[in-house]
Design a protein around this nucleic acid. Structure first.
Lengths: 117, 117
DNA sequence: ATTCGAAATCGATGCCCATCGATCTACGTA
DNA sequence: TACGTAGATCGATGGGCATCGATTTCGAAT
């Protein structure tokens, strides 16, 4: 359990004057912190926040051709943002003929939300 | 309300074969998306996730001199991460003599959590 | 006054990221 | 078969970020 960090302070401080109570092990271990950080990082862009918001409010699969004109960005850039969200497990995609449809996978956001609260 | 994006699709598609239902306005406007993105971006690093976790679980003010040895990082690097969290409004700080104490400001994380759920 | 120490800041470095135009892929249509 | 189109990928570019050692700042202690 816990993290393989050093926990015994290396600095010495004046005797009889501790600066605070000793800190215990962080109870998310490093792997979970990296997972939370990865989700948060994927959401750390206003364009991707709005993409997720549109997909979520639509409550279904949305075609990329509907997403691109929502932004003042090129089609490759929107595709790049969608890929970031997909790599983080926040959205899924599905191809039907020429068109590609994206949808929210709620689990990732529930993970982060559960950690936040 | 809403976002100043173009909403009428510019691409024409084969008649009688719509790819999906039309997308409505995103109901977080751009400013709110940027706020959410800023919070998520500040949390988008495993070190900062663990910093927040330690501060939160400690339920009080924690001295920087206790935080630094938790990580295999230099003191300036930890200070840099704390500054990022402070700039995003996720933590607050307080100086007492030589030492500096940090603590979680729950409002920012509640903001993001409320948007996520 | 001088020294010591905790924390922030500075400057440099190497890497990652957002963005674009151009290209590629693959499917539908004429 | 050839063409047109939706979306992904490529390569380049400019800016931002994580990290470090060195320095600065300022309060404490001798």
């Amino acid at each position: 359990m816990g993290i393989d960090f050093e926990l015994t302070p290396k600095q010495k401080r004046p005797a009889g004057e501790p600066c605070c109570e000793p800190v215990v092990y962080p109870d998310v271990e490093r792997a979970q912190a990296e997972r939370m950080g990865a989700i948060a990082k994927a959401l750390g862009d206003p364009v991707r926040i709005q993409l997720v918001d549109v997909l979520r409010k639509h409550a279904g699969k949305v075609c990329v051709c509907e997403l691109v004109p929502l932004f003042d960005l090129s089609q490759p850039t929107v595709s790049h943002h969608l890929k970031k969200l997909r790599d983080a497990g926040i959205v899924g995609s599905e191809r039907q003929g020429l068109w590609a449809y994206y949808y929210v996978l709620p689990e990732a956001m529930e993970e982060l939300s559960a950690w936040l609260t």
